[in-house]
Design a protein around this nucleic acid. Structure first.
Lengths: 116, 116
DNA sequence: TACTTGCATAACCATCTGGTTATATTTTGA
DNA sequence: TCAAAATATAACCAGATGGTTATGCAAGTA
């Protein structure tokens, strides 16, 4: 789980077109033309997006005649989920309102003794 | 939960420095200098990263004398978790080997009848 | 063989990103 | 009042990103 992967995965997920492609692929593999159709975008643009998804390890390509159907490879996304899950633990314990209040009080304490 | 936020959130998470900042902030608020220290990077660079995190809604700034301590605002990250969780459902059901096999068979079926 | 389909690749462009150094701003503290 | 501290802002730069059009190429089909 090198951080480099996390970089690539999150970056890949940061584009709405790519997220839409992933969503589409979740219901089955698809060729480039098929993936291009829903978007107002050229086929090479989609090919580029697919390459980004490939580099992130989220998609793999097959060979079927002249087609290069893309298929989801969602396991790497677990890395992203994992990172976020670890965070979840933090906030659920440390970032509810009670803790917010404590932080605020602490702040007040620091500036209170003085003046303005 | 507009997709624009998802864009900004995932983009913000795509940088290791920013993830490190978030991790640091998880254990309490911190000023810019304090956040700069662990990195071999200038203070303005960190200020820029903080702005990216702010725009993504993941961090808020307070005012304490001349300090502008940053604090985690992790709730928006739930949007990212949410998107990924929805995906999780997909793979767990649709992307194990069995389904892989089904897809393959379906493909074969399409080409088998010998026509279009 | 020649045409078509499905896709990749190249060359180009504008904009964004992530960093820098230098400087300005604000507030504290002597 | 003046210097220092904490941060922001500006100007700049190289390289990445996201799109385009034009073209190449491999495999199926007439």
């Amino acid at each position: 789980m090198p951080p480099q992967n996390l970089d690539a995965i999150f970056a890949a997920l940061a584009d709405p077109t790519r997220r839409a492609i992933l969503t589409r692929l979740a219901s089955g593999e698809a060729g480039v033309n098929e993936l291009t159709e829903p978007f107002e975008m050229s086929q090479p643009a989609i090919s580029k997006h697919l390459k980004v998804l490939e580099r992130a390890g989220l998609v793999e390509r097959a060979i079927d005649k002249q087609r290069r159907p893309a298929r989801l490879k969602a396991k790497p996304m677990a890395a992203a989920v994992n990172w976020l899950e670890e965070f979840k633990e933090f906030w659920s314990s440390s970032f509810d309102q009670l803790d917010d209040l404590l932080t605020t009080l602490k702040q007040a304490e620091l500036k209170e003794p003085g003046n303005e």
